[in-house]
């Protein structure tokens, strides 16, 4: 099985973008790739533990995703970690600026990572941004 590195940067806070990022991360990870996800900006709040806020739809597709019972993006990120050993890192700047601690984040989220380290990780393989 071929193994490639896939780096996914997630910054958008819309349902469509989060869904597509979660799909790339989960399918990539369960297909034997070494997946690293870096979460920052408006995406960050959706990785806070027990947050009930729903990601707003950008357009029709986001509405349909919910109506048609597409998999929940958080569940997909969690499965990327559980089934495919993906690593999901919160951006250390986002964590600091929002005043978050590790305990405030979902259990499938790793410890905060700086941009320098992520860019180092992303220097080989595929890089995706949502």
């Amino acid at each position: 099985m071929s193994s490639d590195r896939i780096s996914v940067m997630v910054t958008a806070g819309s349902r469509e973008q989060l869904q597509m990022a979660a799909m790339v991360a989960s399918v990539g990870a369960v297909s034997g790739n070494d997946v690293t996800v870096f979460v920052s900006m408006n995406a960050m709040k959706f990785f806070v533990k027990d947050s009930t806020e729903k990601a707003p739809a950008d357009g029709e597709m986001g509405v349909l995703l919910e109506e048609k019972n597409a998999p929940d993006f958080k569940e997909l990120f969690s499965q990327a970690v559980e089934y495919g050993d993906a690593k999901i890192f919160p951006c250390s700047m986002a964590v600091d600026i929002m005043g978050l601690k590790q305990d405030d984040l979902e259990s499938f989220v790793s410890e905060p990572l700086g941009l320098t380290a992520f860019l180092g990780d992303a220097s080989e393989g595929q890089v995706w941004h949502f």
Binding site: A70, L76, Q79
Partner: peptide, 17 residues
Amino acid sequence: KNTFCPGPLMELIGQMK
């Protein structure tokens, strides 16, 4: 049934484990 990609794949992988 009644979910969308990649839901069925993820369910399969969970059971395969």
